[in-house]
Design a protein around this nucleic acid. Sequence first.
DNA 1: GGAATAGTGTCTTTGAGACATTATATC
DNA 2: GATATAATGTCTCAAAGACACTATTCC
Lengths: 224, 224
Amino acid sequence: MLLAVDLVILTLRGPSLHVLLIERGVEPHQGALALPGGFLRDLDEDILAAAQRELTEEAGLSEVPHLEPLGFYGEPGRDPRGRVVSAAYLAVAPRLPEPVAGTDAAEAWWRPVDDVLSARLHLAFDHRRMVAEGVERARVKLEHSALATAFCRETFTISELQQVYEAVWDVRLDPRNFYRKVQKAEGFIVPAGPMRRTENGRPARLFKAGPMQTLYPPMARSAQ
Amino acid sequence: MLLAVDLVILTLRGPSLHVLLIERGVEPHQGALALPGGFLRDLDEDILAAAQRELTEEAGLSEVPHLEPLGFYGEPGRDPRGRVVSAAYLAVAPRLPEPVAGTDAAEAWWRPVDDVLSARLHLAFDHRRMVAEGVERARVKLEHSALATAFCRETFTISELQQVYEAVWDVRLDPRNFYRKVQKAEGFIVPAGPMRRTENGRPARLFKAGPMQTLYPPMARSAQ
DNA sequence: GGAATAGTGTCTTTGAGACATTATATC
DNA sequence: GATATAATGTCTCAAAGACACTATTCC
């Protein structure tokens, strides 16, 4: 039996949620889109270490964000090479650099998760299910944890933070109510210097991630 | 590398949450308490099927409830027999019968999860962590899903449903507010016949699980 | 000034929780 | 009758959402 790792790396590009995909350079499913990942190099390799190694090798991403266990996928027949059990990891990151294809991967891109979930893009193995479960995990975590700041740069405006929620939840939020709500969550965000940034209109205050990882009150999603 | 399954089976006994434990009948950790589980019999065995087989073999439980993937545990060194990766499954069940010890298990019992989490009971391997993550998963799922009905018999009173929430969340709830709240969640519970049951005081209406798996409005836990 | 975004204030509706009250059973 | 639990109603407070309004920048 073989143990593999697969990685669901989510980021924000423009207004929508994207996932890191590679074009497989080797069989099986050569030429198909897939999540980055691969077999453990040897039986003593730590699974988490293998995940980070694959991310560097296949997509040239060295500044790897925090990886969190997502699930395991072990149905017989999910891989034509025989019995393969995959450990899937999830990570969420601010605008990462363009990925670079590496060994075993002919190409690497950020692709909108919507294209994956709606099956406009077809993924090898059972990777579409992994993406779906990763996105759902992120949605839930946005409510009660400070995960949203992990999508942002070190400092960010409240409007940028709002865009994270809108992209991941795929909803529209009222900026004014969002402003109050996010400020009310104790320790979620803290002011970051007197500096300001500008794009269009009045400059906004900058904030950085606060000390609290658990939000109270939570950022509750309404009826969906 | 070896693949194992471990099972976190939760049930309600009296007023508190219990977990199914066995006394290991073989090395390593012979005589120690542990979760039911074991190695896949052969490389083509489905993981879920192996989980159900172990449950029957080690604890004599045939009416196995719905098993849901909880996580994977693969740190090198977690098992003295070498590189073992465990797939943990979670299940939640109404009053199950007393377990019966089987092969590989000298004994099997229901034990209060509090005794496990507080380390009054010591578990082999990293099984305490599995129990902790299973309980936390159940706590979260109680809020937004109809999981609570899985702890009950086919028909139940609202008071019995409340006891589920109180046991899993380890809180006291106001019966009157709980009554209204649970009724307001669309499709959570539906009346089950005109029958009534009695223990002490006015007989209560009977309900059964409704069609909705996702609760709206959710049964929000307050600040903790 | 006009356009655009940032930030504040206020009103209404809704749900959560405290708790009084009535209903129906056993003893 | 007393007691216990079921079920309903009412009140208060707080959070959510709608939205008017002011503030500060660029053009």
